[in-house]
Structure formats: C-alpha cells, structure tokens
Simulated scan of single mutants.
Amino acid sequence: MRALFCILKLRVYRLSRIERIITSHQLAQFELEPDILQQLDNEDSIWFGYDKQEVTLSVHPDVALYFKQRKLFPEQVILTESAAGELLISCQIRHQKQLHPLVRYWIPYLKIIEPVHLQQELDAGLQGYLTSSQCK
C-alpha cells in the first residue's frame, strides 16, 4: 500500500473576481483542519507560506509623529529616535508587496535600510517608471 501525502498550500482569492458559481443541492461536509485554523489565527496578512523577514527603515523627522502615533507597517517597532527626530523602525513582512506600496506612499520621507536589496528593487522600479513615463 502506498502512503498518500497531501501538501496543502493556503491560497487567497478575491470573492469579487469569482465569475461563475456552480451550486449543488448535496450537502457538503467539511472537516476543519486544526493546523490550518491555527495558521489562519496566527496570520495578520494574506501572505501565507512565506517566511517572515525583518526590515529596517529610516523615517524622516517631518513624518516621525505619524509613525509614533500608530503602527503603519506590520509588527512595527521603533528601534531608535535621534536627537533630530529621525526614527529607525523595524517591521516584519512576508512579501515585498507588503512593504513597497507603503514606502512609495511615504517617499521621500522613508528609506529601506535593511535588507539593502529591497531598497534597490524599489529604486529600480521607480527608475523604470520614470523612464517609461518620459518616453510618452
């Protein structure tokens, strides 16, 4: 007898994108999976299956108040505040799409310090946008 292993990967879908629904008059029986329920309880985002990554950002003094008033990034923690009012914050992300839109919103007041490749990806994306918009 062969053992059958089922690897379950949670996915997120937008209900508004469902186009056709097929209904049945049969009653469906679903068994709750404790591991999946635990994973859903532990998540605060839609990025299932990705490892958390710590990100460090610098926040310009002109907008530091907003970051001190409330957490604007996932699991945001203020690491230091300079005498001039600049903040160094950390956050935990599972995917760069959790980070880049927020950083773009706060340009020019935010900069990704670590990991460096996330700032480089952001810079490349912005440079690509500027280059493509100049060609039109």
Rank of each mutant, 00 (worst) to 15 (best):
Q26R: 08
C91P: 11
A84W: 02
E43V: 05
S82K: 00
V63I: 12
R104Y: 02
F30D: 10
F48A: 04
S45W: 13
P115K: 09
P74L: 12
Q98I: 01
S90R: 05
Q39C: 09
F30P: 03
P108E: 05
K111N: 05
Q39I: 03
D62I: 00
A83I: 04
V116Y: 07
R20H: 11
K97W: 06
R11I: 11
H95R: 05
W47V: 12
V12N: 02
E86I: 09
T80G: 01
L40F: 15
E86V: 00
V55H: 01
S58L: 11
V55I: 13
P115N: 09
I46F: 12
E19G: 12
L10G: 04
L102I: 06
E114I: 01
L99T: 03
L102M: 15
I36A: 06
E114S: 13
V77I: 13
Q29T: 14
H100N: 08
V59W: 06
I107F: 07
S82L: 06
D51S: 10
L99M: 08
V116H: 00
Q26C: 11
P34K: 07
L65I: 00
D51N: 12
P115E: 07
Q29M: 10
D62V: 01
Y105Q: 14
K68G: 13
V59C: 01
N42A: 14
L65R: 12
A28W: 14
R11E: 14
L99H: 03
V77P: 03
I93S: 02
L102H: 01
V116Q: 08
V77D: 14
K52A: 10
L87A: 01
V59S: 01
V103P: 05
L57G: 02
V63K: 01
L15Y: 15
P61V: 02
L15Q: 05
Q98E: 15
Q76P: 02
V59Y: 07
P115V: 10
K111V: 03
L10K: 15
H95L: 04
K111Y: 04
Q98H: 11
F48W: 15
L79Q: 09
L15W: 11
G85E: 08
F48S: 04
F30V: 12
E43Q: 07
A28P: 02
